[in-house]
């Protein structure tokens, strides 16, 4: 067992995250064939660097985001757009369909990375400090919303009607507290972990982006496996993805109650109004230029 190949697996999730537990399970499931070394908190490879590290042979496994991939393959920007997927189930269905296989093939061919599946981590919701009523994108006009840095993320903010601003994640809490920003967008578990609920008054359940990363292994490692090993590897990936997704969905449901208990207003806006506004903005922007022909319609039809 000494000559088992070592698989370095780096991610930015924290050691206490649900996904950290999932990765530990994965390591156990493939432990007959591989020695999987887990690194959390972006300590081995910094956020956004996993893909390049895998391409250069300095990392065997990681969970690059669709945004990271679209940096190198612009067609991927379609899955970073607002209101593409209705929920986690829809996203999984699409990624398992021909559409997903087409997207995965691009990553294999162009980047030498094998995608094992989409790892759901929560749906992004708008979390605001001011006590305003938000039903349509127009209600977010003039609202300063912190979004992650980068023009794709900032465009996402505009696509739901807000004034997006990039800000370091670690500064968001103070900025909300002092009013430097009006709000931020994140999945509910992040709002909980970063204690944003302490300094905000409401969560608008916009569901504007289904958040997921791509559980991936370097193609070299994958190709060196026997067919049986590949099967075990893929089965382990499927198992932890299913488990982690279930855990996240349960956590999100539980957190709605928790936030209400903390005195926050948690409500659904007119999602159809948001969806129409966002898809229109994307179609009239340079972002949709690179989207594969007919893919949006195929996804909308599913």
């Amino acid at each position: 067992a000494q000559d088992k190949p070592t698989v370095r697996f780096s991610s930015v999730v924290s050691e206490t995250d649900i996904r950290a537990e999932a990765f530990q399970r994965f390591a156990d499931l493939v432990s007959d064939d591989f020695n999987v070394e887990l690194y959390f908190g972006g300590t081995l490879v910094a956020q956004g660097g996993e893909l390049a590290a895998m391409q250069r042979g300095n990392l065997e496994m990681g969970i690059p985001s669709p945004q990271d991939i679209s940096n190198q393959i612009p067609a991927w920007s379609i899955v970073t757009s607002a209101y593409l997927f209705d929920d986690a189930e829809h996203m999984q269905e699409v990624m398992a369909s021909e559409v997903g296989q087409e997207l995965y093939a691009m990553v294999e061919e162009q980047l030498g990375v094998k995608i094992l599946g989409p790892l759901y981590f929560g749906t992004r919701q708008v979390n605001l400090k001011p006590e305003i009523d938000v039903q349509t994108p127009e209600d977010l006009n003039g609202v300063t919303l912190r979004m992650p840095g980068g023009d794709a993320w900032q465009f996402l903010g505009r696509a739901i009607g807000a004034n997006p601003t990039p800000l370091a994640y670690s500064e968001v809490y103070t900025a909300l507290q002092t009013g430097a920003i009006d709000g931020q967008d994140n999945p509910l578990p992040n709002d909980y972990n970063m204690k944003f609920y302490e300094v905000t008054s409401q969560i608008v359940l916009t569901n504007h982006l289904v958040g997921f990363d791509l559980l991936s292994v370097s193609l070299d490692v994958w190709n060196d496996m026997t067919p049986e090993q590949q099967e075990t590897f893929q089965a382990a990936a499927d198992e932890i993805i299913a488990w982690s997704t279930e855990q996240h969905l349960a956590r999100e449901a539980e957190l709605v109650e928790f936030f209400e208990g903390e005195g926050l207003r948690v409500y659904e806006p007119d999602r159809e109004a948001f969806r129409a506004y966002a898809q229109d903005m994307y179609l009239n922007s340079e972002f949709s230029d690179s989207w594969p022909e007919g893919m949006l319609d195929a996804i909308n039809a599913m």
Partner: peptide, 14 residues
């Protein structure tokens, strides 16, 4: 841009 014009910009960070 953010505080006076309420129109935040992102390119400055880059």
């Amino acid at each position: 841009m953010r505080y006076v014009f309420n129109y935040p910009v992102g390119w400055t960070v880059e």
